[in-house]
Computed example of a mutant assay.
Amino acid sequence: MLGIAAAVLFFIAFLINAADITTNDVFSSVNVMLIGLGLLALHVAGIGHGRRTGRR
Rank of each mutant, 00 (worst) to 15 (best):
M1G: 13
M1F: 11
M1S: 12
M1L: 12
M1Y: 11
M1R: 15
L2D: 10
L2C: 09
G3M: 08
G3V: 06
G3S: 13
G3E: 15
I4A: 13
I4T: 14
I4F: 07
I4S: 11
I4Q: 10
I4N: 12
A5R: 07
A5E: 10
A6M: 01
A6S: 13
A6T: 05
V8N: 09
V8Q: 09
V8T: 10
V8S: 12
L9C: 11
F10Q: 11
F10M: 13
F10V: 07
F11P: 09
F11E: 12
F11Y: 04
I12W: 02
I12A: 14
I12Y: 01
A13C: 06
A13L: 09
A13Q: 01
L15N: 09
L15S: 08
I16E: 01
N17L: 05
N17P: 01
N17Q: 10
A18K: 15
A18R: 15
A18Y: 07
A19V: 11
A19C: 13
I21Q: 02
T22K: 14
T22Y: 06
T23C: 00
T23A: 02
T23S: 01
T23N: 00
T23L: 01
N24I: 01
D25F: 13
D25C: 06
D25S: 15
V26F: 07
V26Y: 05
V26P: 03
F27T: 09
F27E: 03
F27D: 04
F27L: 08
S28P: 04
S28F: 02
S28L: 03
S29V: 02
S29D: 13
V30W: 02
N31R: 01
N31A: 05
N31F: 00
V32C: 05
V32H: 03
V32I: 15
V32Y: 07
M33W: 02
M33S: 05
L34T: 04
L34Y: 06
L34E: 07
L34S: 12
L34F: 08
I35E: 10
I35R: 10
I35V: 15
I35H: 03
I35M: 15
I35G: 11
G36E: 07
G36F: 05
G36W: 04
L37S: 10
L37E: 08
L37N: 09
G38C: 12
G38D: 05
G38P: 06
G38T: 15
L39S: 10
A41I: 14
L42R: 07
L42Y: 01
L42G: 13
L42E: 04
L42N: 08
H43M: 05
V44M: 14
A45L: 15
A45H: 04
A45T: 12
A45I: 12
A45D: 09
A45M: 13
G46S: 05
G46C: 03
G46R: 02
I47Q: 04
I47W: 03
G48N: 02
G48R: 08
G48T: 07
G48K: 07
H49V: 08
H49D: 05
H49K: 15
H49P: 01
G50L: 11
R51A: 11
R52Q: 10
T53E: 00
G54Y: 01
G54M: 03
G54Q: 13
R55H: 04
R55W: 00
R55Y: 00
R55C: 00
R56K: 09
